[in-house]
Design a protein around this nucleic acid. Structure first.
Lengths: 228, 228
DNA sequence: CGGCATCCGTGACGATACTG
DNA sequence: CAGTATCGTCACGGATGCCG
């Protein structure tokens, strides 16, 4: 009692310099984390890497995020130049969020994180959410080894997505949710194999050879994937 | 008033299942963020990439982190297998934290983040902290273009660090704070140029040519850096 | 002195309810 | 559908205390 109960804050913060909690370090990594280090931000980017999304879709594919946090992140990301908001044409009176070029530039960051985190997928917990397009990133790495060019539909038990490679995408491969209208070929495999390909523990051609990957279509892309 | 004041939590959380806020997603990126997505964690890794550090050093080089958060992160990281704690021999009765191989594997993640965040270093705010070894990461990228092998001291106005390349480090380049006892060569340049090299906007050989990089030493490494 | 633990105020987060 | 409003809880940042 006698210890004079802590000076009641004589130096009041007073200066709330409006800074949104930056690390304030002259370091590229710290600057990046200032922009995308908040909880959920990189996962929102991951979702948008699969194409434009509406608010509700994002909320559905990010179980656990609360509505206000999602709204707040999207606003911050828009202010930070990571995403843009676009009104859809009249029929569907909704708006979608999509990545800017700057935002899309985070793909290597997510790829590096995913590669590092891959071992943690050894166990699949019953509480884990799953979406098909989360397996696109590992597959991108596996396809880089091949000279495959074109539009590829990928079918998993968990759902479907597509990958675009070649000159149409300016070198950088992109992918999207669901099947593509202009797919050149289609493959079907299971998620486990998808991950093994990403880890380099399986080889695409071999997996085609022993039937763990089914390739359909007769385009040049399909032929090449089958090994002609 | 009449709206019966919110049911007083009939479904009490009750189940606080001791889970430390995981994203609970079967996705490698989300798993990685479960491990290193907390505030400060990746910056602690960045510090430890420059070599073992004592608690107090970490606290000094991470301005803004509070003591309890730093202690808590280190504990989590130790539990997660990212760092180990090692007692120093008697003379210095202190303990240091150092990265495990798993922790060191985060280098590509930080490199990707740093590359993406590099444009944000255009402005240098007066409140920004700076440490010399934060410039090692950009330089690593620039040196990958060369066939340089050996131990290189790097001198900046902000301080000094060293880089080890070649077979001694099993392919992966490593770096450390301060000068190396066994340096083969030494270069002096300014931080700005360091960043430009990292962005690919400057070429090492050219910068040596016009004197923006001073190379000293007469080892094979020094000769090669000078262009012989 | 290094390495935390404790306490406190503020802000971020998560869940739910509500509104245009 | 796309958020805003509200509220409880917890994480964070800062200061200080303790203990070897």
């Amino acid at each position: 009692m006698s210890r004079l109960r802590r000076m009641p804050r004589q130096t009041q913060p007073a200066t709330r310099p409006a800074r949104r909690r930056s690390y304030d370090q002259f370091c590229a990594g710290a600057r990046a984390l200032d922009a995308v280090g908040d909880r959920w931000t990189l996962l929102i980017v991951r979702e948008l890497l699969a194409g434009p999304r509406r608010y509700t879709d994002l909320h559905a594919d990010l179980p656990g995020v609360s509505t206000d946090v999602l709204a707040s992140r999207l606003k911050d990301m828009e202010k930070g130049g990571l995403v843009t908001r676009r009104k859809l044409p009249p029929p569907a009176a909704a708006s979608v969020y999509e990545l800017t070029a700057r935002g899309h530039g985070l793909l290597p960051v997510l790829a590096a994180l995913a590669e590092w985190g891959a071992p943690a997928l050894a166990e699949r917990r019953p509480t884990d959410a799953v979406r098909a397009h989360w397996f696109a990133l590992p597959l991108l790495g596996a396809l880089k080894g091949t000279a495959a060019t074109g539009v590829l539909d990928v079918h998993l038990d968990e759902g479907e997505f597509h990958i675009r490679t070649g000159e149409a995408t300016a070198g950088e491969p992109v992918y999207g949710d669901g099947p593509a209208a202009d797919a050149d070929a289609r493959i079907a495999l299971d998620a486990e194999l998808c991950l093994a390909l990403g880890r380099g523990e399986a080889v695409f051609a071999e997996a085609v050879g022993d039937g763990r990957i089914e390739v359909s279509g007769d385009s040049p892309l399909a032929k090449e994937l089958r090994g002609s």
